[in-house]
Amino acid sequence: MSGFAQNTFNGLVSGAFYALLALGLAVIFGMLRVVNFAHGAFYMLGAFGAYVLLTEAGVPFWAALVIMPVGLGLLGMALERAVIHRLTRLDPLYNFLLTFGLTLILQDLVKLRYGVQSSPYATPSLLSGSVNFGLFDFPTYRVFILGFAALLCVAVWWVLTRTRIGMVVRAATERPDLTRAFGIDVGRWVTPVFGFGIGLAGLAGVLAAPMRAVNPLMGADLIIVVFAVVVIGGLGSIFGSVAAGFGIGLVQAWGEAYLSHFPIVSQTIVFVVMAGVLLWRPAGLFGREEAPA
């Protein structure tokens, strides 16, 4: 029983990373119709930024947790203004290629400066112990990640459903033309939303630094699964991306724990689930079929 609880907990922790990354992808796709392939690279930059801040300037984890998302968010906004918005009127493929190219450039720049070997990043001392849950001990840092990510998702949900900004973003996501017809300036919100999505990726990166290998390819490895998560949740669906993120984390953890004798299964389970969901609901679990244009 305690084994099951631990595996579940771990699945939720992995899921928290998927959820944060997928949430960013979902809002960006919803607002801009851009499949941001560079999301994984920004996650990597978040982790690397935390590492560089710590080693070069002695900036602790807690400060990095604020600096990196904000900094990367601003960088994302600049990027959106400089290049991405120029391509949004064209086929989505163009921005997909652009962000794919960006990914390669960012990865190689980091590789050039810091090499491919992973860089060390210690767990902040405040969170380095473990918490007893009666049935089992759990590393404090993982508890923190789970709590922090859950809180963040709730906050984003609150902003989207209870504030005027959120209303505009949701409306613009679902029916951009209709929203414009009501006299709302959708364009104004495009850049900040892109920056916000990138900021979330950076935040996930900082959170990952103490428990994952910090190297230039860390985002590339993860992003494939995150895309599967977004597809399962329903492209552009904000609730769907979060639910699917946590769900896929659980499926992976349970798969590894209880199907370890069938490595083929535990390795491909995410994509099997994705294929199954697409057959059943082509728009994803929480997605809505696009109205024919």
Binding site: Q6, N7, N10, V13, S14, A208, R212, A213, M218, D221, L222, I224, V225, G249, Q252, A253, E256, A257, S260, V270
Partner: peptide, 8 residues
């Protein structure tokens, strides 16, 4: 791909 080995 998940980078997670905690199950083991």
């Amino acid at each position: 791909t998940s980078g997670d080995f905690s199950t083991f």
